[in-house]
Design a protein around this nucleic acid. Structure first.
Lengths: 219, 219
DNA sequence: GTCTATACGTCGATAGAC
DNA sequence: GTCTATCGACGTATAGAC
């Protein structure tokens, strides 16, 4: 047994892997998947190109890991928004989810576009399907509760939930592609300027109406 | 000038190209992009695998051509549905578009899944974005007319249209993936059996509510 | 149609850990 | 002394420009 991977080496490897992921996340947020070339990720992580392949067997594998990491955060944020204020109506909680989702997307438009719509490796496409189901389930739970309590009219909660996921994603793609791809934000940090003004309120109105919520006062 | 392509040769080449496209379309309808390997397309077209590359430089190019061909039909069908009955309300015309779109998708589930959601080459992904805009524009025209006439409440027609495109697509993906991937329709022609019963009426109700149409009598 | 640029993935060599 | 991680240049394929 001439060689065994010691804890120190393993820790260093793990740290390096983390550095690679961090570099990829930063590039993804700044330039989307288009900026996530293996060479660029390696350079940002401070290692050689070939060394990335010590941690990921292919670019597709790295792309999928980056996707899962970022979307995992989004699912958590949206789930938290759904859990808050259990005393409120189901419609209001659905709106809270939409506002959370859309607000976060519009604050990081390049990243949101990368996750939602950027043409990319089929492996990432497959992940998109998985995570859309996760978002759907968050909505479906809220809607089913609203229907059960009589607040919302009878409906197929799963179908309405799916439709809302698709509606939210598609409605955002327009505002995301417009200003962000034109100016191609150079990532100097000041990303608090409004992107797609009026998009979120319009989407909220759409959502409330689609749910059949009793008062569509947002009209 | 030892060789010049005579009209007869050119005609034969064009015919062969058409045969390749037909073969690809048939495979796409039966097994989606997963079944559209270059070898399978060539075999069904009755030519050698390498001969496909006489007409298409890559698998991605063939995939894109198949996508454009099929989705072009869908856009035409949906546009026709939108144009019919100009005397009807805008909401009814939007519903006609949705019913046309969804009805056609549910009658050819494997094909619809391939066009809407199947993980596939990024080049096809890019085409998806283009054609979703086309569908959006059909909706946007109808909605803008409804708003102008006062039939529908004031709203951003483009945003509502985008949301409806996303809602329709996402709502269909569930019913499409469920039964069709399980049984993997062997394409014996009898595809008139109902897939996802109740999906279309539910989607119509969703659409009418989301538009803010005066009477949601479908509820 | 040619030519250049870019990017993925691999390989031999080197340095260093065990 | 042996084995492994890292480097960085190379092979190949592909896209875009002229």
């Amino acid at each position: 047994m001439p060689y065994r991977r010691t804890p120190a080496v393993q820790a260093r490897l793990d740290a390096q892997r983390g550095t690679v992921v961090e570099a990829g996340l930063a590039l993804l947020a700044e330039h989307g998947y288009a900026g996530c070339t293996m060479a660029a990720v390696a350079a940002r992580a401070g290692i050689a190109t070939g060394s990335v392949y010590r941690h990921f067997p292919s670019k597709a594998a790295l792309s999928v890991e980056l996707f899962r990491t970022v979307v995992g955060r989004e699912v958590a944020a949206v789930s938290a928004a759904a859990a808050l204020g259990a005393h409120r109506t189901s419609a209001d909680r659905v709106v809270a989810v939409i506002e959370t989702f859309a607000g976060r997307a519009l604050k990081a438009p390049r990243l949101a576009y990368a996750l939602l719509a950027e043409p990319v490796d089929p492996a990432v496409d497959a992940e998109r399907l998985v995570f859309r189901r996760a978002f759907r389930d968050v909505f479906a739970g809220l809607i089913a509760a609203g229907v059960a309590s009589g607040e919302l009219p009878p409906q197929d909660a799963r179908l309405t939930a799916s439709a809302l996921v698709g509606a939210g994603a598609e409605a955002l793609i327009g505002p995301l592609t417009g200003p962000s791809t034109a100016t191609e934000d150079d990532g100097d940090g000041d990303s608090s300027e409004p992107v797609g003004p009026g998009t979120v309120p319009a989407l909220v109105t759409f959502t409330l109406r689609a749910l059949g919520a009793p008062d569509a006062r947002h009209a």
